[in-house]
Design a protein around this nucleic acid. Structure first.
Lengths: 152, 152
DNA sequence: TGGGATAGCATGGGAATCCATGGGAAGTCA
DNA sequence: TGACTTCCCATGGATTCCCATGCTATCCCA
């Protein structure tokens, strides 16, 4: 299964359309639903994106983790699913960003697609520049490393 | 299988009719019964909605959890099945909200359809705004999260 | 190795379709 | 017969589909 890698700057036209970078689309090519799911980040001024399979996965894990009518379930689902949107690719691989998402992230006429492995983020190019520096400094100063993992 | 995602505000006309958001209908398109099952939430001032398949699923789950003639079974069944109604789509994808449901949720002329993955809820837009904030705070403060691991 | 051809990709605009919404007519139950 | 319900049609606006274009990177062949 494909990963979301590297950063791409694409243009947003006046209809709110953006081309999803071809490598990101390729990472989702095997999925039945051809599109992405976007939701606002809880901590940053950015949008988060995943494929539908990852979203269904979250749903399945929630069901196994919480009782179906529990408050925990409903609250988490409200935040997770209630604020997300399903956007399918048009035939040129574009999606249409909803206006409230554009406002939330402060998007003007360009966006940066940032690959984070299992998910990706959408930033304004400007915000992302400063974000990138912060992240780099934080990682080096805190000496964040990858935990040991099992080989597959 | 489709998930219920994002939030849609739709209008209720004076006959009590509401368009079910097209993406929600699409999530149920593969089911044999073209409609939804609604019942009042027993913790919140909202209506809960699922597809018929999910309803049958709950019935099956109840039977495996409780003895068939136990009080627990009957009480839950009374609330869940006794208070629920089956509403089919008209040719434009609308349902008609029963008057007692409208009263219960305090619905006026607009409702918010909130996708929660496997199910959805119907709120007045106003109530939902505060509900959304409560949910967001609760999730961040209680640190309710999904278990680690995001693979498919 | 250089230049032309080709294919993939990002971008733009216009047209057709879908969708939410409203009202009215026909049918049904008391 | 009256009220309520269900079906059917109309409409405006938003969204999606479809076609066109330019750019760039790759490939092929001389």
């Amino acid at each position: 299964m494909g990963l979301f890698l590297s950063t791409f700057i694409n243009r947003v036209d006046k209809k709110g359309r953006v081309s999803v970078p071809a490598p990101f689309r390729a990472a989702l090519a095997h999925e039945s639903y051809q599109g992405v799911v976007l939701f606002p980040s809880y901590t940053q001024k950015a949008l988060e994106g995943v494929g539908m399979a990852a979203m269904e996965n979250m749903g399945a894990r929630m069901d196994s983790q919480f009782a179906f009518f529990s408050d925990d379930h409903d609250e988490l689902a409200t935040v997770l699913f209630g604020e997300s949107v399903q956007l399918n690719f048009d035939e040129n691989g574009r999606i249409i960003l909803p206006q409230n998402f554009i406002d939330f992230a402060g998007i003007d006429d360009q966006v940066a697609f940032v690959g984070l492995g299992q998910k990706f983020q959408i930033w304004t190019p400007k915000e992302f520049e400063s974000r990138k520096n912060i992240a780099r400094n934080s990682v080096t100063s805190k000496k964040v490393t990858l935990p040991k993992g099992v080989e597959s």
